[in-house]
Amino acid sequence: MSSITLTIDNKKVTAPEGQSILWAALDNDIYIPNLCAIRERTDPAASCRLCFVEVEGKPMPVTACTEPITEGMVVNTKGTESQSLARTALELLLASHPVDCGHCAANNSCELQKAAKHLGVKLNTKRYRKLLKELPIDDSSPIFIYDPNKCVLCGKCVWKCHELGIGAIGFAYRGFDRMVTSFAGQPIGQSNCNQCMECVSICPVGALVAKENT
């Protein structure tokens, strides 16, 4: 596969043809906030709306995970417009996230914290009203805990679970009520989950955590 040269934030980088801006940037140590991106996934979910960047010649910011790189492309990850969109998306997520980092197993490894620091957004942002779901925590699995309130609906766990051929979890409901759950909403411990812990290791926040870490 031939490689492509492009400029990201004034830095010349090369990346394999067919790659998206997001992975080209991340592989070259340029951070772009993201929650739902999975490298192996050929059809990016593009659902978290955090990876907005500006590309020279494009009238509007684009999501870096869906935009394939092209030769000579000039990308700016710090444009005012793109950062404004990313901040809005992040603040919306934080407004619906129980920010209690001190007691969270994902503290310091959380992608929300990382994105907030990068974008200069306070974790307890006041721009939007706090809208929490207050759903019960599922601790039915012997080795991990699922807290749907902390879930950012990135869909990584669902993708992984299906990719492994297990299919214990999926999305249910629509709109604000959308959530990750097992079939018919039964406790995960009683589902066909085989406790492989892959979902726990891929979760970018503290929604799925190992019991030994809590």
Binding site: S47, S96, V152, R174, G175, F176
Partner: peptide, 15 residues
């Protein structure tokens, strides 16, 4: 009618 897939529509329209 928002399907809830993407952040801004799911949470933004609610706000």
């Amino acid at each position: 009618e928002s399907c809830g897939k993407c952040t801004v529509c799911r949470l933004g329209t609610k706000q």
